[in-house]
Design a protein around this nucleic acid. Structure first.
Lengths: 183, 183
DNA sequence: TGGTGTGAACTTGTTCACAGCA
DNA sequence: TGCTGTGAACAAGTTCACACCA
């Protein structure tokens, strides 16, 4: 058993926050006891969709794209790459981690036939919006974007950006203010 | 010149939001005309600290750490790696992109002598909190964390986490809800 | 008694709407 | 006239505080 108190300490949020958030999805706790860890974990995994597998496609087979294709961390968490695309004729047709690289022009057609949940974009910045548009056009509602740009998508599409430079830049203001004012 | 209207369209936020946010830092616009793009850009770069260079240290020289050390994208944006650390005796002493890898035990001592603004953590999850603690102990106020865990830091330390799996997991709820209710 | 779930109070953040300046 | 900067209105999100249950 774990209380909202302890959960809050671990996550750096207030106990009230924990309780409010959990209550949004149901009543998982028992008064006077707290939350059953295993039960809570199980319910949250269900609610968040972490108990099933997800079909993912990868676009871009440069150095980064290859690293992503060969990265072993997605599979164990239920994310399975089902297709890989690129625009380079020299790469199309090649094999990469058990997938034959398809041409990105066939992306939308592929998405119409095969169900895909999430797209990973690993193409150069100037090609990224085009790829994102194709994913959205193909009915994708979640995109993991490695290109160093912020794509434009309809509000019903979730995007997560992985851009280490942007992440660094988003901390410099904090560092600057800290160093000058020792806040 | 650019108006808050146009800026808002590009960034998917309301014009009022643009004006409020900018007004927090000063009065950059001209009534009836809008904002001078070059002036605004220059002032924002100054305010955000993007006009200077930042000293960065890297901890962890596994596959990921090596890729980060050799990544060419940080330098042009003013982020310069000034030291590299690891705990593996086989790696300590080796050269990696013009730096001799130092032992992580010397991290805090190094930070006391040399000024470093930002730390990049690229060690396994179970070693990450220890490294983060050493960085914080050494006076670092910004951390880019590649380890798949959420580190515990004092409120005055900024952390950005780069974890593709977590990013994927944070979209599954959205996808699930979209697919079932076509919201 | 201990700790949840939740309405109510409060705080933070966003949008509105308009005075005022180029 | 067009668009900023900003107080005021509003909305969203967080914290408080307590009834209630095991």
């Amino acid at each position: 058993m774990v209380s909202s108190q302890v959960l809050g300490e671990r996550l750096d949020v207030t106990p009230a926050q924990i309780r409010k958030d959990l209550s949004y999805f149901g009543r998982f706790g028992k008064q006077g006891r707290g939350y059953d860890v295993l039960l809570l974990l199980g319910r949250l995994r269900e609610i968040l969709g972490l108990d099933r597998t997800w079909r993912v496609c990868l676009i871009g087979v440069g150095r980064l794209g290859q690293a992503i294709a060969e990265y072993g961390g997605f599979g164990p968490q239920g994310f399975h790459i089902v297709a890989i695309f690129d625009s380079d004729p020299n790469l199309v047709g090649r094999d990469l981690s058990r997938h034959q690289v398809k041409h990105v022009d066939d992306l939308e057609a592929f998405l119409r036939i095969h169900h895909v949940d999430i797209g990973i974009v690993a193409v150069p910045a100037d090609a990224a919006q085009g790829v994102v548009d194709r994913l959205v056009g193909g009915g994708i509602h979640a995109i993991l974007n490695y290109a160093p740009m912020l794509p434009h998508v309809p509000r019903n599409v979730a995007v997560r950006n992985i851009d280490p430079v942007l992440a660094m830049q988003s901390m410099t203001f904090h560092v600057k203010n800290y160093q000058t004012s020792a806040k």
